[in-house]
């Protein structure tokens, strides 16, 4: 194999950056690991549209997505033992395994990176957070219940949201106890039968709340679930009926869910739905077809706030003068409610 030698840092700074811009994502990240100076150069590229999230299965994986490329950095241990449940997650890791698929359909390529100064997972994670000027991850996807959540919390800080699934219900409580500062809750309670203690989890001023749904979890969302959640954004998938929504809107008008900004629910295809029944007994005004209004939305796994333009709709006002606009979109069978800022 030909060994190249090129004195890169003897080039002018703008040409060093030009060389870096011509590298692919993986090479740029590899370059950032070499030294402080190389890291600062990659930082100066101001790589945009980067999503950082973590996934915990047998090992912790940091996924870095940019445009169409997702790179997975696994902090692997050779002696992984899934038993006993609740074991302390070892924070030390002096190498990472990179897995990247450059093009769709191509097999994944694997690399192992080491850096003498990086002895802990935290060192690697902090490095990439710094490179991308990110103080927070978008989310942690938590699968299985092998590890003690507090030991994971020690490794990861600045986590914005948690997706947890396939864990026993008791374990969720430990996750949320450990990640109290996390303001986004997303529950995928697969194959759970006994969900009665769920209220403990739902109570909280979360930014985003996605209750379990009936299809995956055989869980019927109750009005009480919605009222106690006090989240900014709620997405429901349960077979919600007109009467349910009617009650919810009436309670909202009287002051329930004061932090709510966006509530949307997908209705099941075989359920007959009439918006008139939802609005029965509620003062409302149909806005003209030509009206366009922008609302702030934040998708669950994205850090950036985006804006959605809502056409027309039905306006309802709360006792304190706050308005909301509700809509029913027949094509996707979605009931949508935006509260005006």
């Amino acid at each position: 194999m030909e060994i190249y030698r090129f004195p890169l840092f003897r080039l002018q700074q703008n040409n060093c950056i030009r060389v870096l811009r011509n590298m692919n994502f993986l090479e740029q990240l590899s370059f950032s690991v070499i030294s402080k100076r190389s890291k600062n150069l990659v930082k100066s590229l101001k790589l945009v549209r980067i999503c950082l999230y973590l996934r915990l299965r047998e090992n912790l994986t940091l996924a870095i997505s940019s445009y169409k490329t997702t790179m997975r950095l696994s902090f692997e241990r050779d002696n992984f033992q899934p038993e006993p449940i609740g074991q302390i997650y070892n924070p030390n890791c002096d190498y990472i395994k990179i897995r990247i698929r450059k093009r769709r359909g191509e097999p994944r390529e694997s690399y192992t990176w080491r850096k003498e100064e990086f002895r802990r997972i935290r060192d690697w994670i902090d490095h990439f957070r710094d490179v991308f000027n990110r103080s927070k991850f978008s989310h942690l996807e938590w699968i299985y219940d092998f590890y003690d959540p507090h030991s994971i919390h020690d490794i990861i800080k600045g986590l914005q949201s948690v997706i947890a699934r396939e864990c026993p219900l008791k374990y969720y409580k430990r996750i949320y106890a450990a990640f109290k500062e996390t303001n986004r809750l997303n529950l995928y309670l697969c194959n759970q039968r006994n969900l009665t203690p769920m209220h403990d989890l739902i109570i909280g001023n979360y930014d985003f709340f996605r209750p379990p749904d009936v299809i995956q979890n055989n869980y019927k969302l109750s009005l009480n679930d919605l009222l106690v959640s006090n989240s900014r954004e709620i997405l429901g998938h349960s077979p919600i009926k007109e009467k349910f929504l009617n009650k919810f809107l009436k309670l909202w008008r009287r002051g329930s869910n004061p932090r709510l900004q966006h509530f949307y629910v997908y209705l099941r295809p075989n359920v007959v739905f009439n918006i008139e029944n939802v609005l029965r007994g509620i003062d409302h005004q149909e806005s003209p077809e030509s009206r366009r209004r922008e609302f702030r939305i934040r998708q669950f796994n994205e850090l950036e706030i985006s804006y959605l333009t809502v056409r027309s709709g039905i306006d309802i006002h709360r006792f304190d003068g706050i308005h909301c606009t509700v809509n029913y979109i027949q094509e996707i069978r979605m009931f949508d409610m935006f509260v005006w800022n």
């Binding site: 060994i3 190249y4 030698r5 090129f6 004195p7 890169l8 840092f9 090479e27 590899s30 370059f31 690991v33 070499i34 030294s35 100076r37 190389s38 690399y111 192992t112 990176w113 080491r114 850096k115």
Partner: peptide
């Protein structure tokens, strides 16, 4: 890898 890049580009 980062170590190989260091050698290729003679990075301090």
């Amino acid at each position: 890898t980062p170590a190989q890049l260091r050698r290729v580009y003679l990075l301090p």
